[in-house]
């Protein structure tokens, strides 16, 4: 390495330093605290100085990973998040394509409706859905003529209802982003495909989709992270995790087991495990894409 390259490296580092400092403060320190707390028996007594701190090492992790319920909830969370991600992407992509093919006023209406759903606060949205699907007075049951049917009692209808709500409030992001992506594809590329005699499906599959891949990548990772961390919808719509806790997802489980019960050490442990899992999923996804030849 030449002297100038070294000097350039230093200059580059100096330029990056402020950003690194902020990242360090906002990201590294909380994660350090999270890991630290997860190694202790850290409850309300310890926080307010009523009891001495006890170092547990990996005790919290052993307890958590040895708990049958954790694995059940974990499985449910993965499946629930998967359904939400796939649903969000499908609905978002379908409507984005639709938006490119309809007249301006239809598109505007669609966008306004989507933005409405997007900007509704999660608690309000969940409550409105609960009203719509109320067993006795809900609009949906009245239309379907099934008054008295409780959507939130059965495990699967409850999960389905919450998943629908999650998809409803997160598809607009996918739709808007993909719509922008489709619009950004240069017209001449599509024209060339048309001149070569490619069918509409062939154009979509071999031209549009590869060009959209980076955008799809971003929205997929975003959706995975969001849907894995769903809290509000489950907490509000299933009244804190459903009948006998059968609609629990990791975040609600962590809140109930750890924070409501003032077991901050255990809560931090669940936080660390979730962070590691999400990092793992994201890494795996990135690597899979890299293998398929995508430039990242």
């Amino acid at each position: 390495m030449s002297v100038t390259a070294k000097g350039q490296g230093r200059t580059a580092f100096a330029y990056l330093a402020p950003a690194l400092l902020i990242l360090g403060g906002l990201l590294a320190y909380p994660i350090y605290q999270l890991v630290l707390i997860s190694l202790y028996d850290y409850g309300q007594e310890q926080v307010s100085g009523g009891a001495p701190l006890e170092f547990l090492g990996l005790g919290n992790y052993q307890k958590l990973l040895g708990d049958q319920q954790f694995w059940t909830v974990f499985g449910q969370t993965v499946a629930f998040a998967a359904v939400c991600v796939v649903g969000t992407l499908l609905v978002g992509a379908f409507l984005a394509i639709l938006a490119t093919r309809v007249r301006t006023w239809v598109r505007m209406t669609l966008f306004l409706a989507a933005l409405g759903a997007w900007s509704t606060p999660a608690v309000a949205g969940s409550t409105i859905w609960l009203f719509l699907f109320d067993a006795n007075f809900g609009f949906v049951n009245e239309v379907l003529g099934i008054q008295g049917f409780s959507w939130t009692f059965d495990k699967w209808t409850a999960f389905g209802l919450v998943a629908a709500q999650v998809i409803w409030c997160s598809f607009p992001f996918v739709m808007v982003t993909l719509f922008a992506g489709i619009k950004a594809i240069p017209g001449e590329v599509l024209e060339a495909a048309a001149l070569d005699g490619a069918s509409a499906f062939r154009t979509a599959w071999s031209v549009t989709l590869p060009l959209l891949k980076p955008i799809i990548l971003v929205v997929t990772i975003q959706s995975i992270i969001w849907d894995f961390k769903v809290f509000t919808q489950i907490y509000v719509m299933t009244n804190g995790g459903g009948i006998a806790g059968r609609n629990l997802v990791l975040n609600v489980y962590a809140y109930q087991q750890a924070f409501a019960a003032s077991e901050y050490g255990l809560g931090a442990t669940i936080g660390v495990v979730m962070t590691v899992l999400l990092l793992g999923i994201t890494m795996f996804y990135l690597r899979a894409l890299k293998k398929s030849g995508e430039v990242l």
Partner: peptide, 25 residues
């Protein structure tokens, strides 16, 4: 990994422990 975690853990204790508020009386 376990050893590493244990070492890190002990290091953390020596370095710093989670905050506790003082005696309240």
């Amino acid at each position: 990994l376990k050893t590493l975690a244990a070492v890190l853990g002990v290091g953390a204790v020596v370095a710093c422990a989670p905050v506790q508020s003082g005696p309240t009386n």
